[in-house]
Design a protein around this nucleic acid. Structure first.
Lengths: 151, 151
DNA sequence: AGAAGTCGTTGAGAATGTCAATGATTGACT
DNA sequence: AGTCAATCATTGACATTCTCAACGACTTCT
């Protein structure tokens, strides 16, 4: 029952119809939630993503950069930090001596498991108000956009 | 179909199921498209959003900060720049002399119209592969998340 | 009137994004 | 075999964006 006596809370028709704008806001919202969920483990969603890939994929740094949509130079710093904390290690790729494979240590894998349950709990809360099927449809659509080559 | 002879292109089950991660990637993708669409007008999606609100809402700087999810101090710089270009102006709020209302000039409104059609064209391309109803459902869901208070 | 809160602003420091250059290595071509 | 372009990780520089704390001007509460 919003009254509008002087309150003049207009909304912007253009921005409210702009999927990208909504995407940006929703994304900022969701990552703030994620960051808070793993903050006390000394992680952010950034470092959590690196850890996840190190555990589940063991990619080269180049692959890491592509998957996270980051410049390769940022990967260096990110991996440096997590490596210094003993959470992952750089291995030589036996088939290409230029490449470094990023793999989690046991400590890294253990921390990842903790972080994963926290992230998942927080996400469950965030998406709880919506139909599971609806959220799954959203996910599918996002996946398609996220990995399209138009970026 | 993908062979896997040595190619080892694993995907990360955790990240591929993480709606926030997908949201972040899709958002980065979409805003890159948007930035390119208005680059030759000397705008980015950031400044375009400010302009849109100045035209359609005439908010205070505080409101601007909340709607764009930015720190008030960033609004200062953003408005400074657009004001210097003659695209908008700061007015005194007659009901509160602390507040400054941000409103577009005629030049600002004209530039906004140009930018809006470019953004909309680019978006149309981006979302063309998907069902209209599907995209509208996505938009509704994003709108709800974007303006929830859990951020 | 006085206290407490809000608004815009300034300034500082961290985190992120972007780009160019380099040494080591690979793959393609001759 | 030997050259040459391309790729990978890294470094460094710079711009943009984020986050916080402080301030004067003003408002609201009591």
């Amino acid at each position: 029952m919003d009254t509008d006596r002087g309150a003049r809370v207009h909304s912007s028709p253009t921005l409210d119809a702009d999927t990208s704008f909504l995407l940006a806001r929703a994304s900022a919202m969701a990552s703030a939630v994620g960051n808070r969920a793993v903050a006390d483990l000394g992680l952010k969603v950034r470092t959590y993503s690196v850890l996840a890939l190190a555990v589940e994929v063991e990619p080269s740094q180049r692959e890491l950069a592509e998957r996270l949509r980051l410049d390769p130079s940022q990967i260096v710093a990110l991996v440096d930090e997590l490596e210094a904390r003993g959470l992952l290690e750089r291995r030589q790729d036996p088939s290409d001596r230029r490449a470094r494979i990023v793999a989690a240590t046991p400590a890294g894998a253990a921390l990842f498991e903790q972080a994963r349950t926290r992230i998942e709990d927080a996400q469950r809360d965030l998406w709880a108000p919506y139909e599971a099927a609806e959220v799954e449809a959203l996910r599918a659509l996002l996946r398609s956009i996220a990995y399209s080559d138009r970026g």
